[in-house]
Design a protein around this nucleic acid. Structure first.
Length: 298
DNA sequence: AAGACAATCAACCGCCAGTAT
DNA sequence: TATACTGGCGGTTGATTGTCT
């Protein structure tokens, strides 16, 4: 039997992510996690993206404490050492390098380290082998000892399904409205801050050096700022505490999804499935969408 | 200045393993 | 037990950027 595709490729957007999409995905994941299901996430968040694409975007780019580029000599050596031990187990290797993704390590290997490795291997062929694996100089535990900041108490996550944010309107309308208004305000704050991120990035980087981390056992968050080496927006710009979902298994479990969620509230604005993105696509700018409030009520 | 080439890296693809039903 | 579904992974592609001629 053939394998069913994870999404309808004809109806999902592909290619580079826009700032608006990043903002939506970031705000959604930091608030709700992956809602228990990456495949269903774009539907709930109003993104016309494949769930796997959302997951990849979050894990490789939007996740807090991500570092891009600027590999240190220590990291180089560790990658070379681990590759020699286990080969192209990029996820394992990346797990030994805080803030690095498997994709980054893989790209770095293919573009830079591979040549060094092959050259070293060629040299090694004519000389005695190096010390066995497990050398303390490359001990991952030692590497991890420089890790950041202890976790701090988490911000409570809103349970999307339990809160009825799937578009259903029940007796707790006021509660929903309140939560929705908060979300809307937060999203607007994020967008506004992103407009100035270029200006403030340098100052933020200079002022923030800690990273967020969380406990898998508790799914707690560490709402500390993260530095960004490339000047891109980071959780430090966010108006709410960051949820660390370094590993998706760390995400706090949400209640069972009904599977029929059909929309999401931002502020007093209810977005049906895909409707938010529909508006984005038809508007001249993201601001146009937000300013056209009457369009958002339905 | 412009074209060719190389390097980089975000994103996609398809497979596999684990889990739910 | 069989099947379907999802998350995760490694390999690969292709657009963009930088460098060289």
């Amino acid at each position: 039997m053939g394998r069913s595709p994870c999404c309808d490729k004809a109806s999902v957007k592909r290619g580079p992510w826009s700032e608006e999409e990043d903002a939506i995905l970031r705000s959604f994941v930091e608030r709700f996690g992956n809602a228990g299901n990456w495949i269903a996430l774009p539907h709930k968040a109003g993104l016309k993206r494949c769930g796997k694409s959302c997951r990849l975007r979050w894990l490789n780019y939007l996740r807090p404490a991500i570092r891009h580029g600027g590999f240190t000599d220590e990291e180089d050596n560790l990658i070379l050492s681990l590759y020699g031990e286990m080969g192209s187990k990029w996820s394992v290797i990346a797990s030994k390098l805080p803030g690095r993704t498997d994709n980054d390590v893989k790209n770095y290997w293919n573009t830079k380290l591979k040549k060094r490795y092959l050259a070293a291997a060629a040299t090694e062929a004519t000389t005695p082998p190096p010390p066995a694996a497990g050398d303390d100089d490359n001990n991952p535990t030692t590497q991890a000892s420089s890790q950041p900041a202890p976790p701090t108490p988490p911000a409570p996550l809103v349970n999307l399904d339990a809160a009825g944010l799937d578009g259903a309107v029940g007796d707790n309308d006021e509660l929903l409205l309140h939560k929705s208004e908060q979300l809307y305000a937060e999203l607007m704050g994020l967008i506004e801050q992103q407009q100035y991120s270029t200006i403030t990035a340098a100052a933020v980087d200079a002022a923030t050096t800690t990273t967020s981390w969380s406990s898998p056992s508790t799914g707690t968050t560490s709402p500390t700022a993260s530095s960004s080496t490339d000047g891109s927006s980071s959780s430090s710009n966010l108006p709410w505490p960051a949820v660390d979902v370094h590993d998706s298994t760390m995400m706090p479990p949400l209640s069972e999804s009904s599977g029929s969620s059909s929309g999401l509230f931002f502020g007093s604005h209810a977005f049906g499935s895909g409707s938010f993105q529909d508006l984005l696509g038809s508007a001249a700018s993201f601001d146009d969408v937000m300013l056209s409030q009457e369009m958002l009520y339905y």
